[in-house]
């Protein structure tokens, strides 16, 4: 099996759920109109338009009507968005780790999700004196650390935080050690 053990790219669950609910909503509306038509006519040969008067109103509109243009534009944009979400691979969510396969395993794969990288960086920054709170955001190749401090001169603390996080990352055998960017945010004491 050559497929990867961990999914590296997003599975697009949220857009899929939104689209599935949209499909269900269309199905519900269509089904409602159809049942209303059959009930009001009282026969199986009922036309759909007898259940919902909107279809008759549709017939009096021209193609150049503002509502039709708007609907066309909305559908086009939605289609484009779905297509892009479906095709674009999305951000990588795992960082590779250098690991040798032990003799009792043919393949050995270790990954750290970007969330783990952020937590590592935040924990390392937290241990620096003068830091009161830390936020960290990561992608597969870099981490942005933002810390807040009551101290006025933040330069020295920034260097310390940078050193602490860089050293923490260096202690771990990543495939490619992520780069670190540190920003300070002064918090009035």
């Amino acid at each position: 099996m050559s497929t990867r053990l961990f999914r590296a790219r997003p599975a697009r669950v949220v857009p899929a759920v939104i689209l599935a609910i949209l499909i269900l909503a269309i199905a519900g509306a269509l089904g409602w109109a159809a049942i209303a038509a059959i009930v009001s006519e009282g026969s199986g040969s009922a036309a759909l338009s007898s259940g919902f008067s909107g279809f008759a109103a549709l017939g009096t509109m021209t193609w150049a009507a503002a509502a039709i243009i708007t609907a066309g534009a909305v559908i086009t944009v939605l289609g484009l968005i779905f297509l892009i979400i479906g095709i674009s691979p999305g951000a990588k969510r795992n960082i590779g780790y250098r690991a040798q396969a032990p003799e009792h395993a043919e393949r050995f794969e270790v990954v750290l999700p970007t969330s783990a990288l952020s937590n590592l960086a935040a924990a390392a920054a937290d241990s620096v004196d003068g830091v009161s709170s830390v936020r960290a955001a990561s992608n597969a190749s870099s981490t942005n650390v933002t810390f807040s401090t009551p101290v006025r001169d933040t330069d020295e603390i920034r260097r310390d935080v940078d050193a602490a996080v860089t050293q923490r990352f260096a202690s771990i055998a990543f495939d490619r050690t992520p780069t670190v960017k540190v920003r300070s945010q002064r918090r009035p004491a």
Partner: peptide, 8 residues
């Protein structure tokens, strides 16, 4: 195959 995902 062995896959390990590490969380912190």
């Amino acid at each position: 195959a062995v896959g390990v995902e590490i969380g912190i």
